Computed example of a mutant assay.
Amino acid sequence: MNFRSWISVVTGLGIALATAGAPVQAQTAKPVAVRAAYIPVVTWLPAWVAKEKGFFAKHGLDVTLSVAQNLSVLPGTVGRQFEFVPSTAPDLLKAVASGLDVVATSGEVFETEDNASTYVMVGKDSGIKSAQDLKGKLIATPTIGGVIHVATLYWLKKNGVDPASVRAVEVPFPNMADQLKAKRVDAVEALEPFVGALKAQGNVALTAPLLSAGKEVIFPFWISSGEWARANKSTVTAWKASLDDAIAFIKQNPDEARSILAHYTKLPEAVVKATPFPTYRTAITAKDIEVWGSVLREVGQLATTVDSQKLVVQ
């Protein structure tokens, strides 16, 4: 073998060894399959935008979105049916107190003083003007054990009314206006866009109950199985990053975001246009959760001590 041939062999061998030992950059990593549930209301718009505009795919996720109707039962589905589901602090805390290993993995909506989305509404001729006037009254709530009703009970207690003096009945948001008009209930706990429709009919907002817990409080957010989240932090990071991209898109392209909102909620165009966007934010801390732990203890719905520091994986 002459010198030139020897050099060619050595060079070829070196290239082969270097290629074998290095990652193949041309190959694209397979997207991570993720299953998520959502409730068909404006709260979950960032997830829909992330799906429709390709932000999940951009961050390496192959997301399947499935509609659900009852938020309170979803903690028990993570780790089996879904990787991410909607929840609230009371539902999360109660689930953990009952022995489930579930954690918050991303924020979604915060209720703020300058952008409230939930109100206790009463008829304009009801004579109800304060918390004291609700003693012995019947309130329609989407979920008796849910965050909105917990907040209403806390608001009542802060204003000197025994929460036990008020009765509650579960009524879906779309049916609340009819129930209030027919005087089958004395007040309703309504969420946008239903608040806007109720106000248009002359009904009156008595309070924004969530704000009784603070000037800015976590409302719904995303949770996952604790075991899964701790083992898949890169996927949790990608999920949050996708939602952050979607939130930025919503701010810059509100009209296109509303088209996506209409697609997922099936609401009439006029309602979609009138629906205000809530305050979207993915950051969430143990302190955000603990605020609601204090509220639950005040209204007698959380007897077990829960360490909020262990309830957030981001």
Rank of each mutant, 00 (worst) to 15 (best):
F194G: 02
N115S: 05
P174H: 07
D178F: 14
A116G: 01
T152P: 07
I139R: 00
V109A: 01
S165D: 10
Q179G: 05
F84H: 00
A187W: 12
P142T: 10
E83M: 08
Y154F: 13
G79H: 06
S117K: 06
D91K: 06
T112M: 03
G79L: 01
V120E: 05
G99M: 04
L156H: 09
G79I: 02
V103L: 04
T207P: 10
A200I: 00
K199W: 07
D178W: 11
S165F: 08
L138P: 03
V73D: 15
A151Q: 01
K158H: 13
I128P: 00
T118I: 15
G127V: 01
E189Q: 15
L93K: 01
I139L: 06
G123R: 02
G76E: 15
S117Y: 09
D91H: 15
L100Y: 11
M176L: 06
G99S: 04
G123I: 02
A168M: 06
D162C: 08
N115K: 07
V67K: 14
T143L: 14
V150W: 08
L191E: 15
G123F: 03
L134D: 00
I139F: 09
K129Q: 11
A116L: 03
L92I: 05
V169P: 00
G99D: 05
A197T: 08
T112Q: 03
L211M: 13
L211K: 13
D91Y: 15
V204A: 13
F84R: 00
G99T: 07
L156I: 03
T141K: 01
P90R: 07
V147M: 14
N70E: 15
G145S: 13
D178E: 14
V109G: 02
F110W: 09
G127K: 00
P142C: 08
E170L: 06
S66N: 12
A97I: 03
F84C: 07
G196D: 03
A200D: 12
D178I: 14
F82K: 01
A104K: 00
A190L: 10
G196M: 00
E192S: 13
E108V: 06
